[in-house]
Design a protein around this nucleic acid. Structure first.
Length: 635
RNA sequence: GGCUAUGUAGCUCAGCUGGUUAGAGCACACGACUCAUAAUCGUGGUGUCGGCGGUUCAAGUCCGCCCAUAGCCA
């Protein structure tokens, strides 16, 4: 029986830049994809962007762009580059505005229509523009839907409806026959609870004259497809358009956040059933990333983590590892830089990196820089090593990724203990104990080989670097279940960089881009207001850019030389993503002139430039509306 | 209001179908060692296993009620 694995991450709504939640999900998927590839599964991993809908049309309008240009930018300039930098190993990236997707949606719509499961009806109700759906009175709080910024409007509309209710009894039965379908179980219970009541039919279209930004309904040019009947199908259209549907679809796993459980657990299976397609195999539901204090993360709360900043600071492997090791799939988990530093230092630097380092030194010193002859495969370390893969598989299959990683780390710790006990440095002093010495070092090398393969899904670059530092190449997970595959006599490189340099905890604080304002310094912090005196403390000045260059050690920062009238000064500003150095020279900006100087990545910054962020996450600097001389006070 | 989860050492978590003195990692303290990234290894916990009550020879583990947190539904 061939081993096949198809996996999807949720396709992201293309109306803003990726945040840590998007990244968390993709890293989970990346782990599962890499794990299955290494374990001999033919694997296909897909994600993409959801690019239709009223909300996007409006965001585009606000940005002064055509919808297509807008989603092109969000998908191609924001999401895909971010995921590439994060080494998310997807095989296909499906965009819902692509021709291949549109064709597929129309094909499925026809099938469902021909099955008699779509009808036309008029509907009147309260409609939330923000959430793109009709809402009930009961959902409103003070006349507004929680999460929306504007109250819903009355709207009467003729739409096409999908006979979803018709499939409710079937779905309940299917869920009982397939208890493993939705995981973790808590979410399955939730779905079964919802299905005890009628779920109604699903509106699947919008009039084109109101929402032109969508896929046309094939038999009625006056309507376009509504979001879910478009977006969900991306999971299948990616495969179908590549001719891989038959092969992969029956093995599909969807990984989603708990916020979109209902569409995936109820809409999607009934749609598939009506279209005569097999149901996916598993729905994996993860929780949300919270701030370290356990509260929700959000731009408005000012406690959001920028995933790319994390990447710059800690490296791709540490970010993957920490997000996987310190969260529990299915539950909400607090996360922050402290967590990454902790994991990087203890698990990766001290336990794993240092083990590699000490083993390498001893190989270079005692065995001529070569891997010695294999040891007896019946040692405790050998037995535990070849048994490790099965333990890890079990945890991964149960979606307890944090425990899977802990299993491997336990083994790494046992290797450290083994080296301490075997004391190769003592054996090396006595030529008669040479076999013991070689035995011990070979055991350590094999142990590292096994651990590195099993950690590779969470350490996409460093696992291979680790083996390379021992002169070893790639292995499958199955090849960790045989002891002695590291070839004796293999020379190891003379030089190898430190695998995981440790981070000082102090380094964290000083480099933090936005240290939180100390509550004690804000007497009126309760209502967020400050007095005119407090405001007067801030010295805003007009400053002209005389020189701008890239920061040598950070690609998000620019180093600006500013003319502030009577003197010039240097300011480091985090605007490199959206401004080239050339475009800034000659511009007049607003400077906070009496800000305490700070050193950002080794370059002193004497002040701060005012800038904001627009709806697409683009940084925009503040400039005087008419000309003001450099040094002029602003208030 | 109903439902579903969760509540175990300072922190993050493990404890399968009930069974000897409840565990791990991190952090902290002390000790050992020197091959190593001031790393590693060892030793160190009087935790009311959220609370109360019940079933049982035996309950963190089962049952009931209550409290707290999160989410879903109405």
């Amino acid at each position: 029986m061939s081993k096949i694995f198809y996996e999807t991450a949720a396709i992201d709504y293309a109306n803003a830049a990726p945040h840590i939640g998007h990244v968390y999900e993709k890293i989970i998927c990346d782990f599962l994809a890499r794990f299955h590839r290494l374990d001999g599964y033919e694997t296909n991993f897909v994600t993409g962007t959801d690019e239709h809908g009223e909300k996007i049309a409006r965001a585009a309008k606000n940005a002064g762009q055509e919808p297509q240009a807008f989603v092109d930018y969000v998908s191609e300039q924001l999401f895909q580059p971010a995921y590439r930098r994060l080494l998310i190993s997807y095989d296909d990236y499906i965009r819902t505005t692509s021709e291949r997707h549109k064709r597929f949606v129309q094909e499925i719509l026809r099938k469902v229509y021909e099955a008699g499961d779509i009808y036309y009806a008029e509907y009147e109700g309260l409609y939330s523009v923000g959430s793109e759906r009709f809402v009930t009175e009961k959902e409103l709080v003070n006349g507004i839907l929680p999460g929306d910024s504007e109250p819903p409007i009355r709207r009467k509309e003729a739409n096409y409806f999908f006979r979803m209710e018709k499939y409710r009894p079937w779905l309940v039965e299917y869920l009982h026959e397939h208890p493993e379908l939705i995981q973790p179980q808590a979410y399955r219970n939730e779905v079964l609870e919802i299905l005890k009541e009628p779920i109604g039919d699903l509106s699947i279209s919008r009039p084109k004259d109101r929402v032109p930004w969508g896929i046309p309904i094939p038999w009625d040019e006056h309507h376009v497809t509504y979001v879910w009947f478009d977006a969900l199908l991306a999971y299948a259209s990616s495969l179908a358009s590549r001719g891989l549907f038959e092969k992969y679809w029956p093995h599909a796993w969807h990984v989603i956040g708990k916020d979109i459980l209902k569409p995936h657990a109820i809409f999607w299976p009934t749609m598939l059933k009506s279209a005569g397609l097999p149901i996916y195999k598993r729905l994996v539901v993860h929780g949300h990333i919270l701030a370290m204090d356990g509260r929700k993360m959000g731009k408005s709360l000012g406690n959001a983590i920028d995933p790319l900043a994390l990447l710059d600071k800690f490296g791709v492997d540490a970010v993957h590892y920490a997000l996987l090791r310190d969260t529990t799939l299915g539950s909400d988990s607090p996360f922050g830089e402290e967590v990454v530093v902790q994991r990087l230092n203890s698990d990766l630097a001290n336990d794993l990196g240092n083990l590699l380092s000490r083993v390498r030194t001893m190989l270079l010193k005692y065995t001529g820089g070569k891997i010695p002859a294999p040891s007896a495969p019946d040692s405790e370390i050998a037995k535990a090593g070849v048994a490790l893969a099965e333990k890890v598989r079990k945890e991964v299959d149960a979606l307890r990724i944090h425990l899977a990683l802990e299993e491997v780390l336990q083994y790494v710790r046992s290797l450290n203990k083994f080296v301490n006990d075997a004391k190769p440095w003592e054996l090396a002093r006595d030529e008669s104990r040479r076999p013991e010495l070689e035995d011990a070092l070979y055991t350590a090398v094999e142990g590292l080989r096994i651990a590195s393969v099993l950690l590779e899904p969470a350490l996409p670059t460093k696992a291979r670097e680790l083996r390379a530092a021992l002169g070893l190449g790639d292995y499958t997970i199955a090849q960790t279940e045989t002891w002695g595959l590291a070839p004796a006599g293999t020379p190891i490189p003379q030089e190898a960089p430190i695998l995981f340099p440790k981070l000082e905890v102090g380094e964290l604080k000083s480099e933090g881009p936005k240290p939180k304002a100390a509550p004690s310094s804000e007497p009126n912090a309760a209502n967020g207001q400050i007095s005119i005196d407090e405001f007067a403390k801030v010295d805003f000045r007009v400053a002209e850019v005389v020189k701008a260059e890239k920061h040598p050690k950070a690609d998000k920062l620019l180093v600006l030389t500013l003319n502030v009238g009577d003197h010039t000064r240097q300011v480091v500003s985090g605007i490199a993503r959206d401004y080239t150095p050339e475009s800034l020279v000659g511009k007049k900006l607003v400077l906070v002139a009496n800000l305490k100087p700070a050193v950002l990545r080794g370059v002193e910054s004497q002040g701060m430039i005012l800038a904001g962020e627009n709806a697409e996450g683009k940084i925009v600097v503040v400039t005087p509306e008419q000309d003001l001389p450099p040094g002029a006070k602003v208030r």
